[in-house]
Amino acid sequence: MSSIHAFICELIRAANEVEKLTAREMSRLLDRSVDTIRDLRGQTEIAGSRRARDVLIDLQIASSRARDLSPEDARDTLLDAAEIIRALRIMLEGDS
């Protein structure tokens, strides 16, 4: 779980320095977020949740439009991804 914590920190740090990110870096972070959420979701009871799928779709769209996102939208998207991953991590730790 420490690698998940490190990734959450990386997302938050990127959100706080969003002006320094290239579109490619933003897209890669969002793609990693999608992969991480899928993995964590698969380990929880909400794997088939419609809302969980919607979140992944939103992140994938943001990733493909990374160069068109305003700094505010990019920041919000990175923070949303971090929050979702954090919530899933807490759920998994609670199940342990």
Rank of each mutant, 00 (worst) to 15 (best):
M1A: 15
S2L: 15
S3I: 12
I4Y: 11
I4T: 15
H5T: 15
A6V: 09
A6F: 08
A6K: 12
L11I: 05
L11E: 05
I12Q: 14
A14S: 15
A14E: 01
A15S: 14
V18Y: 07
E19H: 06
E19K: 07
E19D: 07
E19P: 01
K20S: 10
T22Y: 02
A23T: 00
R24E: 07
R24S: 12
S27C: 08
R28T: 09
R28N: 07
L29V: 09
D31L: 08
S33Q: 08
V34E: 13
V34M: 09
D35C: 00
D39V: 01
D39P: 00
R41P: 00
Q43H: 14
T44L: 00
T44P: 04
T44Q: 05
T44S: 15
E45L: 11
E45N: 12
A47P: 00
S49A: 06
R50F: 01
R51I: 08
A52D: 06
D54F: 06
V55S: 01
L56H: 00
L56M: 11
D58F: 09
D58E: 12
Q60W: 02
Q60E: 14
A62I: 02
S63Q: 10
S64Q: 13
R65Y: 10
R65L: 11
A66T: 02
A66W: 05
R67Q: 11
L69N: 05
P71W: 09
E72I: 06
D73W: 06
D73T: 05
D76K: 11
T77I: 13
L78C: 04
A82L: 09
E83N: 07
E83G: 08
I84S: 02
I84R: 10
I85E: 04
R86I: 03
A87F: 04
A87G: 13
A87Y: 06
L88C: 00
R89E: 11
I90C: 04
L92W: 01
G94K: 14
